[in-house]
């Protein structure tokens, strides 16, 4: 039975080998897209099936770490890439880098919005209902407010871009603004929620330390899934951003060649 199966596999491989070889060149360049796929398959399989710590209130929703938290990590990395390309644009005024910065920022915002929505779902079963928190305390949650501020600042980035008619001015001003927007991430989502009381892990009062990065904060088994998940989701975001970048580069070919 197994032998037959392997024979069949061999026959399939024999017939498709030429096609496979021709595809190999393409695969060579896009190995990271395949890596992203494999990591996300691993995330879903291990994320749903592996043992996780049994905690009150959280129960199985602790698995949201592999999805909700990864959205925020992906957002930060994508915004970081966008920030780097904005600086690169300002160094040589190459229009290409302005396109890079915009689309990485837009994919970062998509991840941020997804993180926000998934957080809202998670809130409704943990903070609001079971731990005696009223909606009022949840709405005062500094990380919610900080994340909303951060996303709105990036929203203003796109509004700003849309309001220019002059292309050079648009690229220049929005690149400077993008640097400001990235810097604003630091106080709004990393510093302030850790200074004042927060329902998220890592705030004073809850002894859970620095969330996700502290050795003692995250279960070792969960860490084995969480870090690959972050890489997988981020690579997916980068892939989608590059698709949009490549489309716009084709569209704006006449402009980018002049620069």
């Amino acid at each position: 039975m197994t032998f037959n199966y392997f024979c069949l596999l061999g026959a399939v491989y024999h017939n498709f080998a030429p096609l496979l070889k021709s595809r190999l060149a393409a695969v060579n360049k896009s190995w990271w897209k395949i890596l992203s796929f494999l990591l996300l398959v691993y995330t879903i399989v291990a994320g749903f099936l592996w043992e996780v710590p049994r905690l009150d209130i959280l129960n199985e929703t602790i698995r949201n770490l592999y999805f909700h938290v990864c959205m925020w990590f992906g957002m930060m990395i994508l915004y970081g890439i966008s920030f780097a390309y904005s600086i690169r644009y300002l160094r040589g005024f190459n229009y290409k880098y302005d396109i890079y910065a915009t689309h990485f920022a837009s994919l970062g915002s998509l991840f941020g919005v997804l993180g926000y929505i998934t957080g809202a779902i998670w809130v409704s079963v943990t903070w609001v209902t079971q731990s005696g928190q009223s909606l009022g305390t949840v709405l005062k949650e500094p990380k919610l407010i900080g994340a909303a501020i951060a996303l709105l600042i990036y929203g203003a980035y796109f509004v700003l871009r849309g309001s220019f008619t002059d292309m050079d001015k648009k690229a220049r001003v929005s690149a400077v603004y993008n640097i400001f927007a990235f810097v604003m991430l630091f106080p709004s989502i990393w510093i302030i929620p850790r200074l004042v009381g927060s329902l998220h892990p890592g705030s004073p009062g809850s002894d859970s330390g620095n969330p996700a990065l502290d050795q003692n904060d995250l279960d070792a088994g969960m860490r084995m899934v969480f870090y690959p998940a972050v890489i997988g989701w981020t690579l997916l975001g980068i892939w989608l951003a590059t698709l949009r970048i490549r489309l716009q580069l084709i569209r704006d070919k006449s402009i980018t060649h002049e620069a």
Partner: peptide, 25 residues
Amino acid sequence: GPEMADLMRSNGKIYIVVAVCLTIL
């Protein structure tokens, strides 16, 4: 101890969720 989806896992139904998510992915 805290309640977990043990029943789902003993029924084998959690694998259906994994299969659905993998298909979408």
